Simulated assay, not measured.
Amino acid sequence: MSQPQSHTRPTGLAIWLIIAGVIGWWAAFQLTVEKFHAFENPGTKASCDFSVLVQCTENLDSWQGSVFGFSNPIIGLTAWAAPIIVGVAILAHARFAKWFWWLFWLGIVGAFAFVCWLIFQSIFVLHTLCPWCMVTWSVTIPSFFAVTVHLLRAGVWPLPARGRQIADKLMAYVPLMTIVGYAVVILLAQVRLNAIPNVWHTIQIALGWV
């Protein structure tokens, strides 16, 4: 029988998983609402359509927005419950077996890989930046780094003590890893879509500054 991981209860990770899960779920919920609104009112624009570049409709109506035959946000409505449940369980002093962490990590990896693919499709194929999609990206990227580093330091993966010590120190660099991840996305969007000035102009219009 698998033994539970023995690392100190990761309170910080638990809190982040809850926050990320709530934010991700809310973004998925908003996109689902927009999709149902489009079904009920064909031809209308989504409330998150701010410009040709910053919009939700193009993404929701594309085949990339329904990869498995139904709208992607429905996946988020169910999947984002997992980090919330795990985070709450950790705060309640639950301890999980290695096999559980492996399954949870595989889910996080799947989410990260899917988001990376969607980022590529959005920037290089659809040429749009969906606001609620970007919210999902923003919490998936750090969640991947945080959970991966935690599994390394907790001994879920067979590492020598020195390797676990290094992984433990790496947890403090998860915010930096996240910033680098965001920077890569911003750079790609800027090179392909000239995103920064376009997004800034859209914000100015939304705020009534121009």
Score class of each variant (00 low, 15 high):
residue 55 Q to N: 05
residue 201 H to L: 12
residue 47 S to Y: 06
residue 85 I to S: 05
residue 47 S to C: 07
residue 167 A to R: 04
residue 192 R to Y: 06
residue 67 V to S: 14
residue 170 L to Y: 10
residue 139 V to L: 01
residue 53 L to C: 03
residue 103 L to V: 15
residue 14 A to C: 02
residue 155 G to K: 12
residue 34 E to Y: 05
residue 80 W to L: 01
residue 204 Q to W: 00
residue 185 V to Q: 01
residue 53 L to I: 02
residue 94 A to K: 15
residue 98 K to F: 01
residue 82 A to F: 10
residue 47 S to G: 08
residue 82 A to M: 11
residue 28 A to S: 12
residue 191 V to G: 07
residue 9 R to D: 07
residue 179 I to M: 15
residue 67 V to W: 13
residue 15 I to C: 05
residue 169 K to T: 11
residue 64 Q to T: 13
residue 183 A to D: 02
residue 165 Q to K: 05
residue 47 S to R: 13
residue 122 S to V: 03
residue 56 C to F: 06
residue 86 V to R: 09
residue 87 G to N: 10
residue 65 G to H: 09
residue 69 G to A: 13
residue 82 A to E: 06
residue 100 F to S: 11
residue 67 V to Y: 11
residue 47 S to P: 10
residue 138 S to H: 11
residue 118 L to R: 01
residue 124 F to M: 06
residue 27 A to S: 11
residue 93 H to R: 15
residue 75 I to C: 13
residue 98 K to S: 07
residue 127 H to E: 00
residue 196 I to A: 14
residue 167 A to H: 06
residue 123 I to P: 01
residue 165 Q to M: 00
residue 206 A to V: 00
residue 22 V to N: 07
residue 158 P to L: 10
residue 54 V to Q: 03
residue 90 I to K: 14
residue 113 A to M: 00
residue 62 S to L: 02
residue 167 A to E: 07
residue 176 L to Q: 10
residue 5 Q to W: 03
residue 105 W to A: 10
residue 200 W to C: 06
residue 13 L to T: 06
residue 125 V to T: 12
residue 165 Q to L: 00
residue 1 M to D: 08
residue 119 I to N: 01
residue 3 Q to M: 15
residue 148 T to I: 00
residue 30 Q to N: 08
residue 113 A to W: 01
residue 168 D to S: 14
residue 77 L to W: 04
residue 119 I to G: 02
residue 89 A to R: 03
residue 33 V to K: 11
residue 199 V to N: 04
residue 7 H to W: 07
residue 142 P to A: 00
residue 83 P to W: 00
residue 189 A to W: 03
residue 128 T to S: 07
residue 174 V to Y: 05
residue 139 V to Q: 01
residue 8 T to S: 15
residue 205 I to D: 10
residue 30 Q to R: 07
residue 3 Q to D: 15
residue 174 V to T: 08
